[in-house]
Design a protein around this nucleic acid. Structure first.
Length: 421
DNA sequence: TCTGGGGTCCTAGGACCC
DNA sequence: TCTGGGGTCCTAGGACCC
């Protein structure tokens, strides 16, 4: 039996935890560069603010009229709060898969009678609330897809009080019959459209499709979804954390970039950041891509987007990656353009054991480089200050907008809230 | 003026091998 | 008229997720 747990309006709720004065106020959280709305409190949703809506299109009047509180994304806060939620769940269940920053699947004992399952769900919910002040929804079912669906119901219907036990086959059918097919996990907008053409409108319609047909008309993922909806568990709990296969570091610029030197500094910063992540994962990469693009939204101005890659000897040394990244940038840079965004992608990873060495380099030197990177990371993770490469530049003209950032309440000593008596 | 960032998996088709 | 069979590896593109 699986339990699916996710935090209600996660980013918005994190902002509220340390601002009890905002308890019943509408609040929204913006994407990087203060671009789009990516989280909304219940009150903001009620005002009709849509997920992904460009922030600049919300009028100042509208915001003032409803007293909407606006926040830039504060990932230091969200990541720390996420850890607290996950640690709580880890302590309460035999096994857990952390699926995203605000979601997890937990394993439950299969022999539990129904009443007990619901009780377990309540305990999970209440304990997370007690530990973190965050409200979660809990869905319980014999497959992951059904557990997700149960959680959808837990959110949608108040009287469930945030916990739905969907272990019963009849209840599964009842819920599926009134759930639009696009709410099913793995069915996105495009698939939903294609399914609707075939008169498959609800989750139950999809469940009634034969797995064979699902495979033939669509693909193996849809087939698995059909089986899962029918109680056949195809997706297991992934509790061993696989290392990631790709690292992307990209940002939109606060102001459009027109100078090569500014772009170089930005690219070097993204590269250094990506390399740091790579070393943190104890991995090496053999492929690096750099991309730059102008805004696709400016009328009468041709959109330019380009990327290029280099294959390199396996490395996680920032200097080698910086050299490659700068070479690539030279190839794709075009002057007289207003660049809106750029990024660096690392691919083709290997670990130390499977790392094939370059025939033409001095391996003793290579080891010493590894030591140097370790020292840099150690300094930067400590509170001693930060060190960086000269190519990263010092004036940060390319930095993203973050005008409404809340304090790092839980991760920076100076930002810890004080209580006045 | 202003429109996010970071991932995964699957498939078809091309290129190659014997 | 008629031109094999069985593979692997790689990549781009499409779909999905949060």
């Amino acid at each position: 039996m699986f339990a699916h747990i996710d935090v209600n309006s996660f980013y918005a709720s994190c902002e509220k935890v340390f601002r009890p004065d905002l308890d019943n106020e509408p609040i929204i959280v913006l994407s990087n560069n203060d671009g789009c709305v990516i989280a909304r409190s219940q009150e903001a949703k009620a005002l009709g603010i849509k997920m992904g809506h460009p922030y600049f299109q919300l009028s100042a009047q509208f915001i003032e009229q409803h007293n909407i509180q606006v926040f830039s994304s504060n990932y230091a806060l969200y990541a720390d709060m996420s850890n607290r939620v996950m640690e709580t769940l880890e302590r309460l269940t035999p096994a857990i898969e952390i699926y995203s920053i605000d979601e997890a699947f937990c394993q439950l004992a299969t022999h539990s009678p129904s009443l007990e399952l619901e009780q377990i769900g309540k305990t999970l919910k209440d304990t997370v609330k007690q530990h973190t002040h965050l409200a979660v929804g809990v869905g319980i079912a014999p497959t992951k897809t059904l557990a997700k669906l149960a959680n959808y119901a837990a959110k949608k219907w108040q009287k469930t009080q945030g916990v739905v036990d969907l272990s019963n086959r009849i209840r599964q059918h009842k819920l599926m019959a009134i759930t639009p097919v696009e709410e099913v996990w793995g069915i996105g907008r495009r698939l939903a459209k294609q399914l609707n053409v075939l008169k498959i409108n609800t989750a139950l319609d999809l469940a009634k499709l034969s797995p064979h047909e699902a495979r033939k008309k669509f693909n193996v993922i849809v087939e698995r979804t059909v089986r899962e909806l029918n109680g056949e568990s195809c997706l297991t709990l992934d509790n061993i954390h696989e290392p990631r296969k790709q690292i992307i570091c990209s940002r939109s610029f606060g102001e459009k970039v027109t100078e090569l030197e500014v772009m170089q500094a930005a690219i070097c910063n993204y590269t250094a950041k990506a390399a740091e992540k790579l070393r943190h994962d104890k991995q090496y990469c053999k492929h690096i891509t750099v991309f730059i693009k102008t805004s696709p939204f400016v009328p009468n101005s041709p959109y330019y987007s380009n990327y290029s890659s280099e294959v390199i000897a396996a490395t996680n040394d920032t200097r080698e990656l910086l050299t490659a990244a700068q070479n690539i940038l030279q190839r794709i840079w075009q002057p007289n353009k207003h660049y809106q965004k750029a990024g660096v992608i690392l691919n083709d990873f290997c670990d130390n054991e499977t790392n094939q060495f370059d025939l033409f380099i001095d391996h003793h030197k290579k080891t010493r480089n590894g030591d140097l990177m370790q020292v840099i990371d150690k300094i930067n993770y400590s509170h001693l200050g930060k060190i960086f490469f000269a190519s990263q530049g010092v004036n940060g003209q390319w930095h993203m907008k973050q005008n409404r950032l809340s304090p790092a309440y839980t991760t920076r000593i100076a930002d810890i809230a004080t209580v006045k008596l």
